[in-house]
């Protein structure tokens, strides 16, 4: 798949995101309950979607800018930095979350500690699943 096709898919995703946002706003208008919350969520989704569409549509019209973007996204150092940053962030998250669990247990907030612990467990399971898939393909 060439980069132009990828951009077109991203534009479609932006339109979809904006449509979801508008739908959430509409639901907020109809249901009346939690209308403020739904309007806020809907507005965020809609604005994010519209911004994506505008930025990618601008990119698709400018061949030079699109080539620059393609280089920036596929640059091996950028990919390397992203991967390493994710690894480092994951490790730090593990340490911080473990400390938070311990602190919550010590102050008697066991249910909150369980939530954080399940978050870590879920993260670990997703990591192991991704690792297995990548290992099989490598």
């Amino acid at each position: 798949m060439n980069f132009k096709s990828k951009i077109k898919i991203r534009i479609a995703a932006g339109i979809f995101l904006a449509a979801i946002g508008i739908a959430i706003i509409a639901i907020g208008n109809v249901t009346q309950s939690d209308a403020e919350l739904l309007h806020s969520f809907g507005a965020v989704y809609a604005v994010m979607g519209i911004m994506r569409v505008i930025s990618y549509a601008r990119l698709i019209r400018d061949e030079g800018a699109m080539r620059q973007r393609e280089i920036a996204e596929n640059d091996e150092r950028t990919v390397y930095i992203t991967m390493k940053a994710c690894t480092l962030a994951f490790s730090i998250y593990g340490v911080v979350a473990s400390a938070v669990i311990t602190a919550l247990f010590l102050i008697g907030k066991t249910s909150e500690a369980s939530v954080v612990a399940y978050c870590i467990l879920g993260f670990m399971l997703i990591y192991l699943l991704c690792r297995t898939i990548i290992a099989k393909k490598s």
Partner: peptide
């Protein structure tokens, strides 16, 4: 040089400074 290789200028700077090892 970066354009010829299809990488960013920052990658070339890092390679030249020895901060990054190329694939």
């Amino acid at each position: 040089f970066a354009a010829a290789l299809g990488v960013t200028r920052q990658t070339i700077i890092s390679l030249e400074n020895g901060r990054y090892n190329a694939s």
